[in-house]
Write a protein that binds this DNA or RNA. Structure first.
Lengths: 253, 253
DNA sequence: GGCTGCAGTTGACAAGGATCAAGGCGGGCG
DNA sequence: CGCCCGCCTTGATCCTTGTCAACTGCAGCC
């Protein structure tokens, strides 16, 4: 039993929030920050950006930010908390499309259909910046950096959508999932080796197209192999390099 | 053996081409036609659209339109023929991302990384309209219809990327694949019940994350059930409604 | 003509993961 | 406090699908 970490409780959960800004400076970690910077904080366009953005929340775990079929009027940047997007088919089966962390943007897939094609559900207590899309489009026409930023965000999400597509083993999928989360936390300045899984095992499994039991088994195996330390939803990556190698087929680079 | 169609040879293969236009009117079935129309055929912007578009081809089956890593300078609309996009991982395994028919656009996923993240390979003899992306962006800034069109194309592709994601049976996947192709031919004005499969069984299988043998078996079963008629790569859908029902979990609506 | 190679089909078998089932743990609430 | 209800874990079994293999048909080519 000495392989276990009986008393090794993980430290207090981190509670990342992508909001170090005030009404003038917005969020430093926000997906739009580079666009704001490009536009220049002191330019008249910023005043306009302030008009089209609105802070909304908090949403408690389980509450909807938007629902399938809602008319599309805005996109949302996560300021704090975590969100899952999901589709529910007519037989009532849920399909998790993605998880969104602070600084990331949801709603881009609603531009074309003009209605949200999925639900967005808070997993944590969450806060958002709501960007009116018509106003954003108009601004994009005048500020090339904003237009280019929108194009790039859309294109980026296209790239990540094809990540999950391949037929890969349960180990590869879970390892890639953990490393993907780690990388996304890292680029926003949070710890890449220790974080909280806001989503249930069932949500992870659904997202990865596995059974919840399989996810549970893989995590147990990773723990037995000393690759991770996991206690409920508190996670520590002990061997990121090995995990990256296991999941490499699904990971960029 | 009377269930077979011994002498029922399928008619001559259709050879759709999305080009009913000349240098002035462009392609009526092209993905950009609505943007052109919105911009007004006689407006000065059209002259600009002509400057940024260039007809390229023919490419013969197996030739690359672009390769992974090529610098991103343009997107391509298929005028005629069929294209597959694919990624090849470092172990050399191929991953088919999608098939593109006349009127559809390839290269949108390269905007963000600024290099093509995948290969595009002609399956047929193929022709394209090449749109310089910098010029297109500049035009989009001045013509809201063009900007909006680009946003919508990107968003639309986001939606279709999540289509394939679910864990579905081989029957569901193949049925949905056939119905998806049928629908895409239909919107461009081609027959929705009889068409040529430009891609090999292996490519279909790879795209659907199945083994080639499984695709072969499913198609044989569909034929035995009188749902389709298939002879090599010539396909006729005999029971589109039943196929749609089989694949409904993956299909829109 | 016969050889070669590729695409496709079909069969036999094996394996990874889904499903079914049972039990533990923890939190909310009467 | 004790009950209940999710969430999670672990074990046993089953089934879909991948893998291996053999065979056919066809096209290109010497």
């Amino acid at each position: 039993m000495q392989a276990k970490h009986p008393a090794g409780r993980l430290p207090e959960p981190l509670n990342p929030i992508a909001d170090d800004g005030d009404e003038t400076h917005f969020c430093g970690t926000c997906a739009f920050s580079s666009a704001c910077i490009a536009a220049g904080y002191d330019k008249p366009e910023l005043a306009e950006l302030q008009c089209l953005v609105e802070h909304v929340g908090p949403f408690r775990a389980g509450e909807h930010i938007f629902r399938t079929g809602d008319p599309f009027r805005a996109i949302f940047a996560v300021r704090g908390g975590t969100v899952k997007t999901r589709m529910v088919d007519k037989e009532g089966r849920e399909q998790v499309l993605g998880f969104y962390l602070p600084g990331e943007v949801i709603g881009l897939n609603a531009i074309y259909p003009e209605h949200f094609p999925c639900d967005a559900v808070a997993l944590d207590t969450s806060f958002f910046c709501r960007f009116s899309f018509p106003a954003m489009s108009a601004l994009a026409s005048r500020v090339p950096a904003v237009q280019s930023h929108l194009f790039r965000m859309l294109s980026k999400e296209l790239g990540s959508a094809s990540l999950l597509a391949g037929d890969h083993s349960a180990d590869e999928r879970v390892a890639a999932f953990l490393m993907d989360l780690a990388g996304r936390y890292a680029v926003r300045g949070f710890s890449a080796t220790r974080f909280h899984l806001s989503m249930s095992r069932g949500d992870i499994a659904n997202y990865l197209r596995l059974a919840a039991e399989t996810v549970s088994r893989v995590l147990s195996r990773f723990r037995a192999q000393q690759l991770i330390r996991i206690e409920g939803r508190e996670l520590e990556l002990l061997e990121p390099a090995k995990l990256h190698q296991i999941g490499q087929a699904l990971l960029p680079d």
